[in-house]
Nucleic acid binder design. Structure first.
Lengths: 378, 378
DNA sequence: CGCTTCATCTTCGATTTCGAAGGAAGTGGA
DNA sequence: TCCACTTCCTTCGAAATCGAAGATGAAGCG
């Protein structure tokens, strides 16, 4: 049941507005699309008779007649999305409004190479589809996040670290052999940013920091993901000020990652005689008020904050959302805030919000859905 | 002769495409606007009969019939644009394709306050119009650059340094009292970036560095000026790594401006017993191979490059254009390049060009024209 | 309760845009 | 030179879109 959406032009725009939750009624659509109300009515009627859109009760009055609420029909289709990590993949199915139908996590060694990994992924998708989706509901798109840089022009992985065999691999092309559908391949931090963006209505410029084993960052400019040449947002190898000198795996001294990533904190804790298995365990240590852990997290936050200082002055975002497994540690955000507010221009921090991410663990999957809906589905 | 352009919707789009030089023929317009060729012909015919557009000879064949070249009629109108500096204003008139008709520089103390300065500006505009523009050619828009932050939402100056009396002043509103026309007010580095952008066709993401008395920076994302909350691109108060510690006028230690601005270099030269009047004089010293000057400029370039490192990783621009009076010093760009290429991710520098600005001394004026044409003129 | 006001949505004729077809004007190869 | 082919531009009927007017349903108010 693979099938491209049979919509084009104006119809597609309207469908997208409903799918992304920006519009709920014909009147909303008229306001947002710029089309005349009459044209909207016509197109909506067509979309309903195509079975893509449905009417469902009525919305809240804004002082006059209540709008008839429009929703994507559940049978309009589903999206299959995944977020590949080093040792496991998070994957699931979304409906066409981008809401998750089912999400699960499977072990998956990315080091086994692209073919094996992607085939495992496709098989998992097929399983989920067979179990959770009726036969007459078509798959409309496939998207996946990759823990490394993706060239936006070619959808190929470029110079990834810790992903042997993936360099230059045409991921989208390979998935396209199995699915004749819109395919999205994107860096995982970028997907997370796209997912987070939907939770900050009215904020067009945001940075999403992913503090986990590594440090990732995605950038939304003007409501759209900024890709640059494929590495945009990569701040992990920025040089930080420091008294000592630590050599990073990349060959340069004093990279942010070597001081403030979950991996760096874990190894520093080990030096202090405290062994933890995952970055998330550091959060528990902080919650238990273990001084070594708290001090380390605070130092990491300060270092991250110092780097963000430059970026806040330069980019002036509305929001910096901090996610990833380390973000649950209270002192992290606090010390990031302190560093940024102390050193940045008042004009840049005037209305700047530095807050925990809102999209939760499935942010990357939701982001993949959002990008598929916005960009890929015509 | 003030008059808003009598165009709307599709007509305006087409006019803009011709004005900005992106389209030269009906066929170009059809390709770029997305309209059908037949619709383009209709609208163009209207624009010609309105006297806004004219046909002028024919262009180069692309293998078939030669296109009839379209140009904005010289009588379609003019724009009045200015770039305010601390002690003088550069101002001029542009035709509707953004090309300068006349440019001049006048002494103008910005410290005399907004009313006096803006009235002087308007008087200068009126003079130029009277001398250089026939009575039947209307003024279509007015734009000016300000050497300080401008809130994009309100077009007010916010927390400027060295501009007493300007804080919170509604510049656009004030000019609007005298001209019932589209008014543009923008930070000077931003205008320079907008002007530079036109000289880098195909490059959608660029940073323009202005190295003069101060250090300014404008950012073009996706072909459009990025404003953020009004301070975007302001990197002059970013903290740099250094052994010593210098206190900047802003109250923080070790700002980039305190080490690498023309003002900082001049004061360092003075300490070495070499007195110069303007940053441009430093360039002559470098050309004469005065070791102190060369070494200072090289150090400034390295420091600027180190800051750019962070921004290149984060933003992944296609081009960094270096302008301003110091940019003529060869070692500046060389050492910026060295710092950036040494430390940035290969993916980010793969196709990155770091080059002297191309738009010349009138960059800001051209930028004002470009922004007026793109944004203000409907 | 009836009245006014408001926002939503539809109807219908006027306008704009499209797209297929074709004429005009050029290039390049046999 | 002729002829095939390309690109540019226009013509004209078909289709999409608009906008004014009105119908619909709900909230607010005396």
């Amino acid at each position: 049941m693979n099938q491209r959406l049979p919509v084009s032009g104006a119809q597609g725009d309207l469908l997208r507005l409903v799918a992304t939750g920006r519009a709920e009624s014909r009147a909303d659509l008229a306001r947002l699309s710029g089309l005349a109300a009459s044209s909207v009515s016509l197109r909506v009627e067509e979309l309903i008779s195509l079975g893509l859109l449905g009417e469902e009760g009525s919305g809240a009055s804004r002082g006059g007649r209540r709008p008839r609420r429009l929703r994507l029909s559940p049978s309009a289709g589903v999206l299959a999305v995944a977020d590949l990590g080093a040792h496991h993949a998070r994957l699931g199915l979304l409906d066409l409004s981008g809401a998750p139908l089912v999400v699960e996590e499977r072990p998956c060694e990315i080091a086994r190479g692209p073919e094996a990994t992607l085939d495992l992924l496709s098989d998992a998708f097929d399983e989920l589809l067979a179990v959770h989706v009726p036969d007459d509901v078509p798959l409309r798109g496939v998207g996946t996040g990759i823990p490394g840089p993706v060239d936006p022009a070619t959808s190929r992985v470029v110079t990834p670290s810790r992903m042997p065999g993936w360099n230059g691999f045409p991921v989208a092309e390979h998935l396209g052999l199995r699915y004749d559908l819109p395919i999205l391949v994107e860096n995982d931090a970028n997907l997370m940013a796209a997912g987070e963006a939907r939770h900050w209505p009215g904020c067009d410029n945001l940075m999403v920091l992913k503090a986990g084993t590594g440090i990732g960052c995605g950038v939304i400019v003007n409501g759209h993901l900024h890709r640059g040449r494929g590495a945009a947002g990569d701040i992990s190898h920025v040089r930080v000020r420091s008294d000592s000198s630590v050599l990073c795996a990349c060959g340069h001294p004093d990279c942010l990652e070597a001081y403030a990533s979950g991996a760096a904190l874990m190894s520093a804790l080990a030096d202090a005689g405290i062994t933890v298995a995952r970055p998330a365990d550091i959060v528990s240590l902080v919650d238990d008020a273990i001084p070594e852990a708290t001090s380390l997290v605070r130092g990491a936050g300060r270092r991250i904050g110092e780097v963000l200082t430059v970026l806040v002055n330069f980019f002036n975002p509305d929001v910096i959302a901090v996610g990833g497994s380390l973000s649950a540690a209270e002192p992290l955000i606090t010390s990031i805030r302190a560093a940024v507010y102390e050193r940045c221009l008042p004009l840049a921090t005037r209305d700047l919000e530095i807050a925990p991410a809102r999209a939760g663990r499935d942010a990357a999957l939701l982001g993949a859905g959002a990008l598929l809906l916005e960009a890929a589905l015509v």
